[in-house]
Each structure stands twice: as C-alpha cells, then as structure tokens.
Design a protein around this nucleic acid. Structure first.
Lengths: 203, 203
DNA sequence: GTCCCCATCATTGTATACGAAATGTAGGAA
DNA sequence: TTCCTACATTTCGTATACAATGATGGGGAC
C-alpha cells in the first residue's frame, strides 16, 4: 500500500467532498509524514526509507522515555486503572488478530502520552506512532503485531510501583523490540515489495 | 502581537495571492502551533498559556538533549567549523541587538539539529524553537535575547572535545536558562500585556 | 437608561472553473 | 525496430463564486 498514488479527484468522489477538502487533508498528512507530496506530481502514501524509519524510531524512543519520566511522577490510581482496562481490551482483541489489534497497540502508547499531560509530547507521540504503523506495513513481516502485550503490562507494573527508572527502562526495552520486529526482519524477508529492496540497497 | 486576528482577505491582499494560498499557510502554521484556529471564527497568532509554554520547553529539552547525544558521536571537524562560524555571526549581530540577533540564536539550535542528521528530530526542533520565540514575545522581558552567546560556545566546546555527557549537560543548562529568561520573569514584569497577566492567574 | 432582538455586514467554509504542468500515446523518420 | 516529436489526456495549482456562520449596531420594550 505505501507508494500508492492518491489522486485528489478519486478521493473526493469516494468521500463525496470537493478537491478542496481532500487537498487540505493531504497537506496535513504530509506534514505528519504519512503521505509524500511532490509539487505538480501529486500525493502518494509515504514510503519512508530505512534511514528515515530509523530516525522515526529514534525520535519515538526519546519522546516516549520522556513520557514515562513524567508519568512516574504524576500518575494516579485511576490512570493505572485506565491503562489496565486498555490492556484487557488488547488481550481480548488478540485472538482474531485483525487490524483492530494493531490499532489498540498504538492507542496504548497514545494513552500513555495523553496521561502524561504534556500536549506537545502528546502530539509528537501520536505522530511517530502513526508513522511506525506505516513503517511496519512497509518493512515488517506480514501480520506481525508490533507490540507484545507482556511488554505493555511490564510498563504499567513499573508505573504502579511509581518506579520511574524501571518504567523508562521497560519502555526502552519495549521500543527496542518493536524496532527490531519492524525493521531488522526486513533484510531477510523475501516477500517484501521490490521497491523496498531497491530502497534498501540504495542505502 | 500574539492574539492578533489574521484575516484571510487582508493577508491575501498583502501578499498578492488568493485566500486559497493563505488558508493552506494558516492551516500549516496551526499544526505547528504558531496560530490558533477556531472553526468559523478564523485564525489568530497563537497565545500559548503558561502551561502550554512549559510543555513546549519540556519537549524542547528532551529533543535537544537527544540531538547532542547523537552529535557527540558523529560530529565532524567541518561541522564544528560551521558552528563556530555561526557563533561568530551571532557575536557580530549582538551590538545592534535587533530581531536579527533573535533569529540567529534560534538558527544555532536548528543548525545543531540539522547536523545531527535525523530528519524527524530536525523538524521537531525547528517547531519548538519557533514556538519558543513566540513564547518569548508573550512572556519574556522586552528586548531580551533568549540565548547567551557564552552558552552556545560552551556547547560547541564540548562537541569539539567529543564529550557527549558534557555537551548534553551544557545544552541542559542552556535551556534551563532560556526557560527562566522566557517564563519566570513574567511574574514580576509590570509591563506585560494584560492578557498575559489574566492568563497567568487563570492558571 | 438598560437590555434584548433583529437586520446588516463581515468573514469563513466549500465548491467550481480555468490555466499550467506532466504524463501517456500515436505517428513518422532513421 | 527504435527513437523522437507532437498531440491529447490527466492531474495539479490557484483564483473566484456562492453559501453559511458569526459579529456588529440600531431600534424598540421595559
């Protein structure tokens, strides 16, 4: 799907709105890094290079560690409760393993950022999480979920203990694992799109 | 200036373009946090609350520390040279103390981020630096420069020594100082805009 | 004198229209 | 056959037009 052209007229017809609306949406998705936009050539679903993908994961690591540093200081019991309920949802969704599972895994991270109560961090985390989903679609194994439930649980456990150091470390390990699942597998997987291969060897 | 209404027609006439162009520009500035955008009521130069301002500075600290962590590992001699030349420019601009000085101070941070070579970090740093300039205009003392030259020099010195720990620490101290100059002074300064005062007591 | 309602105006939100750039295609020459 | 050029078609970039929403001010009632 990444690389697909996004023609303004088609999308407009699809949603029953004019090109004006589509255009503003595409512009927004462009600054968020989800669509590539070339002048006079139109929009396409973003195809981040491996190098860009690493950049996104590095930024994500930096931002989410900060989120947990904050959270460990200010998290409330009802916050913990809410996180636990979310993990329960994730557990429930795992069996059928559809796109709902991937969405929920991302929302866990976004929920953490929201609870941290910093609007800037929150927006940036939202952005990098979305981009990571895209990267997973490009480079990850098909059908691989990007987050292990166990790892989410460890983060919440550390938060419940108000152990900031452990919480940050848990998130660190989790994101290392996510990065590995999303990126490192791509060098061996034969099923990947030809564009990905070319991109990889082009460094 | 923050809080001023931005009428699409006026701006369009001012620059000789149609509302279409102005609108896309305003939308972009809105996602970057520089203009507030209320549905059916138009755009205005952003007026971040003190709490939002602290959020921005916290995110900035987190991002720029990461920039220096990266840079300490990969900085080249020609990078150092370029940073030194930039500081020389800043020194030259200080006497007349105009807006050029403020712009150069911001560009030093953006240059650091660019040299770090992570496109995501680079974009985010660009954004928070812009927002900090806005915050300085809102809450800072009039005519106060937001960056001390000496502090910039210390950062480059640490980079030249390839001392990552010291570089991150220097940036940390620098941004602490910047935050203080931009925010803490606002509680005592009688010359501040009435809106700022109200905003502050409204927490 | 003050408050409220309605009319008018200003400004935004969305659609459409038109010119420009780029891409694809057919035809002819080497 | 292959390459190049000219034309046609598609799609984008910008301006303009119209509808909808919110702001402003004046007149009347209490």
């Amino acid at each position: 799907m990444p690389g697909d052209k996004l023609t303004e007229d088609l999308i407009g017809d699809r949603f029953g709105v004019s090109r004006t609306i589509v255009r503003t949406a595409l512009a927004r998705l462009n600054v968020e890094g989800l669509v590539d936009l070339q002048p006079n050539k139109g929009a396409a679903i973003a195809q981040p290079s491996l190098s860009e993908a690493h950049d996104v994961f590095e930024a994500r690591m930096c931002l989410e560690r900060q989120v947990l540093t904050r959270l460990a200081d200010k998290v409330t019991d009802s916050d913990i409760e809410r996180l636990e309920r979310h993990i329960a949802l994730e557990n429930k969704a795992t069996p059928n393993d559809g796109p709902a599972s991937i969405r929920l895994a991302g929302e866990f991270h976004i929920l953490l950022a929201d609870l941290a109560g910093n609007s800037v961090l929150s927006r940036y985390v939202d952005e990098v999480v979305s981009r990571c989903s895209l990267i997973l679609a490009l480079y990850g194994r098909p059908h691989s979920s990007d987050c292990s439930l166990n790892e989410h649980q460890q983060i919440v456990d550390a938060l419940r203990a108000r152990d900031g150091t452990r919480a940050v470390a848990s998130m660190g390990h989790h994101l290392e694992a996510v990065t590995e699942r999303a990126l490192l597998s791509s060098t061996t997987d034969k099923h990947r799109d030809i564009r990905t291969i070319l991109d990889y060897y082009a460094k």
